[in-house]
Design a protein around this nucleic acid. Sequence first.
DNA 1: TCCAATGTGCTTTTT
DNA 2: GCACATTGGA
Length: 735
Amino acid sequence: MSVEDLLAGLNPQQREAVQCTEGPLLVLAGAGSGKTRVLTHRVAWLIGACGIAPESILAVTFTNKAAGEMRGRVEKLLGPAAREVWLSTFHSSCARILRRDIPHLERRRDFAIYDDADSLATAKQVLKSRNLPAGNPEARRLRWQIDQWKNAGLRPEDAAERARDFEAEQSAELYGGYQRLLVRANALDFGDLLLCTTLLFRQHPQVLEHYRERWQYILVDEYQDTNHVQYQLVNLLAGEHRNLCVVGDPDQSIYAWRGANIRNILHFERDYNEARVVKLEQNYRSTQHILSGAGAVVANNTGRPDKQMVAVRGDGEKISLYEARDDRDEARFVVKRILALQREEQRAGGDFAVFYRTNAQSRPIEEELLRCNLPYVVVGGVRFYERAEVKDALAYLRLLVNRADNQALRRIIGRPARGIGRASLDRAQTLADQRGLSLFEGLRLLAGAGGRSAAPIRGFIELMESLARDAAQGSPADGLSLLLDRSGYLHALRKESTPDAEARHENLRELIASAEDFAETDAGANGADGRSAIGRFLDQVALVSDIDNANLRSESVSLMTVHSAKGLEFPVVFLAGLEEDLFPHKASSYDEDKIAEERRLCYVGMTRAMERLTLTYAQERRRFGSHTYAVPSRFLAEIPAEFLAAQSPGQRLTHAHDRSYAHDPADSDYDQTPPPPPGEPPDAVRPGSRVRHPLYGPGEVLEATGHGPRQKLRIRFDRFGVKKIVVRYANLQFG
DNA sequence: TCCAATGTGCTTTTT
DNA sequence: GCACATTGGA
């Protein structure tokens, strides 16, 4: 492939982002602007045109899917040389670094990686050991706090130092206890992977130097979602040579609640004052109406760099809006629309996606899809690797490679039941605590002391030792089969002989199959770390649990939360449940920053749509079992009417009389043809005058500030209560 | 140690 | 309304 080919099909801004290889570069890549294209071509350009060695390039993404996609596309451009590029997620990069260099921090290389459930269980253990309430809420709160600290780059002693009140002091102390438990279990949680790597770099400059020399060019994707440790990590690595390219879109920052700091991208030019900035403002995905509608929503946020996204695909259809009577009516409408579009436009099921704010909303839509025999996939929800039986099998495997893995041991000791109960476990834990040993060693001591539980414990220890002899060095798939058999797990499952047990058995077979798949791609891959195949399999499972987005392109309609939709695109998108307290979510409604994030989330959802976008909301919705009345989301009012299609009577599912209790027929904008274009707004609207809003209907102006189109009004709507409205966006009718 | 009955509390969740 | 976790009894 020639050097010119590496630039083929790129627009001038994209070319600039690809060719500007030296020094810091910020690429502000709006939704659908070809961000992945730029990243992959940039990597290819560095290697193919600048002669940079592939192994000198580090490219980090947030998801394995993004990393895999990038790798595939770079390989397509360059061939096998692309394999030498270090291209992975933040977390797996850190895991790989630590597998090599964590001994500098006095820790062992063969650490286990704890998932959320393990961390939560550990948090409970700390609370219990301090005789504090150790229920779910308390443990989750502690977990969250520890996570925040880790994301901020703080160790327990740092947290303690900053504590200003008793509660913070106590939490910091608990953080320390939690950390000691992790060390004793020879385990790292997700946050540790990042935090330990930054500590490693700070405390051991020669290690940092090694990686700095190795990675002369660094690329970071989704920079708007980086948290503080990730920010530190990137700066440590790139601070010297400053060949750092970050790509992102401040308007798509939707993970602040998990510690992401939008200021990392907003302040990039301050951090690297010689930085070049390239804005990608051509959108190749959506039509202009969709783009402008979404842009108008997010424009209500303050403190964002302005950008003007332009669609290369033309205006397209306007955004549709549907007011449903309740959540079931909403589901019926969505499914009916899908069926109609399949018929009229010969669309495949895979062209459609339904997004919602919360997972609970999928249910009525699923029911309706089921009723109409439309195949669908729910993305997210209960993940494969989180199924109890899959976690059980993996816990056996974990205990096999790391005897100190206390959470794994606690999980499987009673599965199947083998006569070792709470009492024995508590005694073993006490013995272990006294001597600073692992729970496994505690059990060994307890068995040695005789007593009723000695025999079953000995049996369990022998089981683990026999498995260690016969399975630990083999393939992960063989190991799984053997341990499921010898532990009696399969036997117990078969004995149940319920459909549910059969399903669990099936999941275990699937797990073994995935272990076999792993072995095929694993051969020779990073084998230098001296770990067993099982150890590598467990890493992959812990860090790559984002399994099969494979079905997305099939015949099935996709259902997912707006968060999961990030990075995806679909020809036809439905965004459901646009109601106050749902989207924006109630928990966000008291905080402007949180509302701003909800707004960005809405922007992300809308900009996934390529050709058609439909927004729906319900007047009434079942929540937590009871009915609640809903008010349309403020985000709907933020979309200028010029981008919205009026509802045509033909699209109605419910009859007018079904809804008459809520709508005065005289002011129904939805059942009738579109209202005549509004007259020019008067120069200044006075309090007391009557207005009509396309969404909220008639109302009375209470208060007015400013002049002309920029004027802000406070209006009491006859049906929806008091709202603040900006005249320019509201498409009000006066008079 | 196990089971059933009762209680509770519910956003999002790249890794 | 439902999933779960904890509790109390056998």
